[in-house]
Design a protein around this nucleic acid. Structure first.
Lengths: 347, 347
DNA sequence: CAGCGGATAGAAAGCGCTTACTACGTTGCT
DNA sequence: AGCAACGTAGTAAGCGCTTTCTATCCGCTG
């Protein structure tokens, strides 16, 4: 089939050990010998056998990243940042898409575990389900036992697991956002939450409720519907919201993608945004700033958070510094105005 | 560290061969023995060592997918479809993001090659560069030599490579689209092409030009600017287009993402779409149908094409049937109307 | 009752690579 | 001159698994 180390060694007239050493450059090899080996390598189009190397050296040069939805920029940005980061260490990131399915998550986790990857980064909210959490915890512990570095990015560590976390302050961000909407004078505020039983959903919802509570807004005036973080679900949610309570003056979505869907739905229903209904999102995706009106949202340092996670996963950053808390920043743009009021230019 | 087959074997009082056999189920093992082994496996939390297995069996259960940009739904959809398809064979798809960089593409290709994955699917347009093409060709041939199935999805096979291709009929789709715009009465049509030196860009541009030619439209009346398929680049392109030729009555973008950016830019510039300027896209992404106005575009069977590619990569579908040509379908919606005319409801 | 074939289990030879350990010149000192 | 120390290269023992080949034990048949 392909040339093996032994073939190369034979051709260069050296032992396999020597070839291995010029390949890895971790042991002195005389110039002339190295040249011969290099030539043989090239002549035979040698390609290392990854599994064999991994088996012998018991380590690989790949970092696995588990995401919920590759086509959601929220994850795309994180995956991209992580990739750039680990590439600097000459490692490769492979991204595994669970499509939001807990069982797929477990499947990929164990795939990565058995491939003995160097590190695993779990991104996005985790499912709040004791059974799934326990299963995840077990796999993570096993991974750690074989020396795989596991880091959590944007989700809490499951019970019983000791692992570095990069945490985004979803709750504080959500509180700041809702507080802003309230301060603009809204009293009937619809909320499009993420999928039930998801840690991110819960955190953002908690922040929202806290702001509502502190403003003394009645629950009945602030209907909550659930989406699944996709644009389409935001569209549907807006429909349900306006059908049930035609009188909300603002809709806050748990992420920008859904906010975009909400805006599309309102537009389609002939409701003018923001004059007749304000809209706010969360995440500050690139498209949030160039839609019309520009979306008021909360900025999460997704890219830098993911890079940080990548650095921990590759071992470049120590994990002992404790969790990395990354703050959220309220971004006031044009999609939230006083009820029935006029658009307000940002800045 | 972790338990090995030998540990399990010892505990179950059998040989490693037997444990391997119950694990793989490809050889008869008596019921009672199997039970004992299963118990031992569970008690020790055994996890197979992927590299070791791959080395011994010289094959893995992963399919690699190379994409240009994970956060672009165009690829997200393909990655998703592929993943669902290979999951049915109990294989796992890992997706590698090149971020449009040819060198990353080569890097990932060789990573997958040396990992001896079962199959590799290369998606998206390829770079039109002899050197890069040759490098790609060489890697593909090497992969094939070690038994890796390589399939191209949405790009032509590099010169000198014999590999199954799933090809989308970009050119015909583009021609149909531009023809439609022309038939609506437009004579000054701006075109936002993809990045230079990309096979998809070239095919779509060729289709566009063919339609222009057949309609006898002068080149000068149909300015072309290049973007990079991202929404932001579409936004910029629209700016450049309207600055240079303020009088185009329609803008066709080489993909929906850029079309969305174009619409945003026009909106921001106070140009009403489609009354003052029609806009058309390509791909029929989910959001194309729910933006306002709904985007007239060309539908590409991305999901089914990717599934097909997945089936070939796993060996479920033979590759001998020759290339799979998948047609494009013109989707007339609301974003293209007669110049200066009124919106036309679709269907 | 000898002899056979089927069903199971084990022994052992790798898969291709890394990495102690060992071996063998050279140098550089005292 | 003699010995330590260094710079190189080779030997060979695995890494944890799969799989071929062989060995056993049965239940049957003739």
């Amino acid at each position: 089939m392909t040339a093996t180390l032994a073939d190369v060694a034979r051709r260069a007239g050296v032992s396999t050990a020597t070839v291995s050493r010029v390949l890895n450059g971790n042991y002195p090899v005389a110039g002339a010998t190295r040249e011969r080996v290099l030539d043989a390598l090239a002549e035979l189009d040698y390609v290392v056998n990854g599994p064999a190397r991994a088996l012998a050296a018991s380590s690989t040069d790949v970092i696995g990243v588990i995401v919920n939805d590759v086509s959601d920029p929220f994850f795309g940005i994180q995956a991209g940042g992580l990739q750039r980061e680990v590439a600097e260490e000459d490692l490769l990131a492979v991204i595994c898409n669970t499509a939001g399915s807990p069982s797929e998550e477990l499947k990929y986790l164990s795939l990565l575990l058995r491939q003995r990857v160097r590190g695993i980064v779990l991104t996005g909210g985790a499912r709040e389900d004791a059974e799934h959490e326990a299963a995840t915890a077990k796999l993570i512990r096993q991974a750690q036992a074989v020396g795989t570095r596991v880091v959590l990015c944007g989700r809490p560590a499951p019970a019983g697991v000791e692992a570095p976390c990069v945490v985004f302050d979803n709750e504080a961000g959500a509180t700041a956002l809702t507080r802003h909407v309230v301060e603009m004078g809204h009293e009937r505020i619809g909320y499009v939450a993420g999928p039930r039983g998801n840690t991110t959903t819960t955190a953002r919802l908690a922040g929202h409720r806290a702001a509502l509570r502190e403003a003394g807004i009645r629950r009945a005036a602030s209907p909550i519907v659930h989406g699944d973080f996709s644009r389409d679900s935001g569209f549907d949610a807006a429909m349900r919201l306006s059908r049930a309570d035609g009188d909300v003056t603002a809709i806050i979505a748990a992420n920008d993608l859904m906010a975009l869907g909400v805006m599309a739905a309102l537009r389609r229903a002939g409701t003018e945004v923001p004059r007749q209904c304000s809209v706010a999102g969360f995440d500050d995706l690139p498209s949030a700033s160039d839609c019309a009106p520009a979306l008021t949202t909360v900025r999460l340092p997704l890219e830098s958070g993911a890079r940080r996670a990548g650095r921990i996963a590759t071992g470049r950053d120590g994990a002992e510094d404790g969790d990395a808390w990354l703050g959220a920043e309220l971004l006031v743009r044009d999609s939230v105005v006083r009820p029935g009021g006029r658009a307000r230019r940002a800045r």
